[in-house]
Write a protein that binds this DNA or RNA. Structure first.
Lengths: 208, 208
DNA sequence: AACGATACGGAGGAACCCTCCGTTTGTCAA
DNA sequence: TTGACAAACGGAGGGTTCCTCCGTATCGTT
């Protein structure tokens, strides 16, 4: 079926839809070049529409971001859904985290999408956060139920950690490092206590 | 002794020094109110100097940030130094990480300082990154040498994870969550393998 | 006191933000 | 088809911030 923006609203006009899509395309392009700081007038120019048109469709900068990046978030959610059916809990979580890193490494917009989870205000933030939290919970809860994971780390917290891990994706070698960090984290989830209070260090057993 | 900006340069003039300090004071104040986004003209106004004076002392926004936040970074470094002498490796690292969280929670500017580690360009980034990496290495290496920590996680990587953990410090309950995340991470460092390749999950022993 | 050297201040051009409103265009009923 | 109106368009324009440039004021020295 065709892409439709029509909700229950009176009526969407044809040129309106066309321009909206042009704007989204242009925004994706301009943002990926100069992430997040690009001028909205540049987006309008790129799209070949007036600045007024841009503001009518997306009243705030945030709104434009939201429209551009919502799709990426949904993609991650879908992956979690799939993994939660197939892989075993520990490997499922690990794979999803790894996939995140790979996506960030290749897809331009993904980083912005995830950073907005933390900084974007209101709408997109809420949406992404809930969506991704749900995705992680899907993977996490099974493991907790099965006794594979400690139970005192929430999906929200894990999400924060993840965002952080590639928050500062540096040059060349960031990817292996990020993968390793995720592994460390998953190990921590598996090996730790399940009590709420910080405990003293107990002698490790799986150490080399 | 008095604060001195004089290096090997020809001669620093008295009013120059005075204005520089006024600017730093004003910047700290204005930035803590509206972190990082505040207008530089507001800073100049607050300091009671012309905008030209601000730009002469700090040619770029970055330069001003650097001057304001360098101090915070040094503070963290000093703490690591102290902890690396007193506490045992595992607890030393844990304490430093916890201290970070506490500082971020109370001191306004600390978050900006740490975020700049990831995003600030060139000068401050390099300085902070090296400084904090060194701080962590101080705490980490002892533990690795003693066999307390796995050896395949570098100080740089740990720093990234840390920055990430309170990158998105949310409302009310972020602090307990952050502390828990750090604990999970430290547990991962203790319990994990020391080989480079991701291994299959081994049966945990300290689990509840 | 006088005189360079140095630093100061702020005017000004450019970029951007966002609003407002006159003009154009799509849609639908006749 | 045609006419008419709501909806959407475009961009001028007022306000803000950025950063540069240069005439003026101040410092420090002789």
């Amino acid at each position: 079926m065709k892409a439709k923006t029509a909700k229950t609203r009176p009526k969407p006009r044809a040129d309106s839809i066309r321009n909206r899509e042009r704007l989204l395309l242009a925004a994706a392009k301009v943002f990926s070049a100069d992430a997040g700081q690009a001028s909205l007038e540049a987006v309008a120019r790129e799209a070949g529409v007036g600045i007024g048109t841009l503001y009518r469709h997306f009243p705030t900068r945030e709104a434009l971001f939201a429209a551009v990046y919502r799709h990426e978030v949904d993609q991650l959610f879908a992956l979690a859904e799939k993994l939660s059916r197939n892989a075993d809990p520990v490997e499922g979580l690990r794979k999803w985290l790894h996939a995140n890193i790979r996506l960030v490494a290749t897809k331009k917009g993904m980083v912005e999408a995830l950073q907005l989870v933390a900084h974007g205000s209101s709408e997109l933030k809420t949406y992404s956060f809930q969506r991704l939290t749900a995705a992680i919970a899907m993977l996490l809860d099974r493991g907790v139920a099965a006794g594979d994971f400690r139970s005192d780390v929430s999906a929200e917290e894990l999400l924060r950690a993840l965002v952080g891990i590639f928050y500062s994706r540096g040059g060349k070698g960031w990817q292996p490092g990020a993968l390793r960090l995720v592994n460390v984290f998953v190990d921590g989830l598996c090996g730790g206590t399940s009590a709420g209070t910080p405990r003293r260090q107990s002698p490790r057993s799986t150490a080399k």
